[in-house]
């Protein structure tokens, strides 16, 4: 069969599996344990089918059994954690599965020799962003969990979109990986012995070739920060008091200084 057709079939299975796994109101379409079992089976079958069509993936074991199994364990953890993050009924658990997925991704980066990218992913996403998420989640639902937190709205649409994105990326990836030069690179990188990118070289590239992109991203973040502070400052202002007393009240440090 044509590889693209197989990919699309795999995408269909993935989408159906994800749709069954997503938490929905009541026990739709079957009873919940059956949904879970069927979804897991369909999803893993679809993913396996997809992996079989990617030229690089089948050859990971040929280099060394140890490094091959490291890769497959990391990849498995990442995929399972990602799925669990989406289908979990408890927002806090979703966030934690997402964190595990980040760790798996960082492990895959490390496996590919991108040590700096790996630790930077963990520092930025797991260390800062996800902690903030968790912070808000834990403050937002001190007791009980609301129904709209526990079910997924538009389960069908999200399952279709998710599986289509995965399928398209995999098809493109499969074509690119099938090129002869890509195969040469991937076989050289097997076993983690490929060229390790230097941190200094990464810095040089970031601040010369991609300088403008870095600057724009920095300005964007700064704008967001200032905007957040501005929104907060407006909410705290009290309209009916006159400006002078409000100022004095808002900055208690003035007297001390």
């Amino acid at each position: 069969m044509d590889p693209t057709r197989i990919m699309l079939l795999a995408a269909l299975m993935n989408g159906a599996g994800l749709w069954l796994l997503l938490p929905q109101t009541g026990s739709f379409p079957f009873r919940r344990p059956l949904n879970r079992t069927l979804g897991t089976l369909l999803g893993s079958a679809g993913l396996g089918l997809m992996a079989s069509q990617l030229p690089g993936l089948g050859e990971w074991f040929s280099g060394s059994v140890f490094w091959g199994s490291v890769f497959w364990i990391l990849a498995g953890v990442t995929v399972v954690a990602a799925a669990a993050a989406v289908v979990s009924r408890d927002p806090v658990y979703s966030a934690l599965w997402f964190g595990l997925m980040l760790l798996g991704t960082a492990g895959l980066f490390l496996f590919s020799g991108a040590a700096f990218l790996a630790v930077a992913t963990v520092t930025v996403y797991a260390g800062a962003i996800l902690v903030t998420f968790l912070f808000v989640l834990m403050l937002a639902q001190p007791e009980g969990r609301a129904g709209y937190d526990r079910t997924s709205t538009e389960a069908l649409l999200s399952a279709v979109t998710g599986s289509m994105i995965v399928a398209l990326l995999s098809i493109v990836l499969g074509r690119v990986l099938g090129l002869p030069e890509a195969i040469a690179i991937s076989s050289a990188a097997t076993g983690g012995t490929g060229p390790t990118p230097d941190v200094a070289r990464l810095g040089t590239v970031l601040f010369s070739r991609y300088l403008i992109a870095v600057e724009v991203a920095g300005v964007l973040l700064l704008t967001a920060l200032v905007g957040a502070a501005a929104i907060l400052a407006r909410r705290n202002k009290c309209p009916c008091e006159d400006q002078t007393t409000a100022n004095q009240m808002d900055s208690p440090t003035e007297g001390a200084a």
Binding site: L96, F116, V119, T123, A126, L134
Partner: peptide, 20 residues
């Protein structure tokens, strides 16, 4: 480990999860 210090930060960041 070329990114040693960033690694320290990454793992220290994970310690937050323990307390939280």
């Amino acid at each position: 480990m070329a990114a040693g210090l960033v690694y320290v930060f990454a793992v220290n960041g994970l310690a937050v999860y323990g307390a939280l």
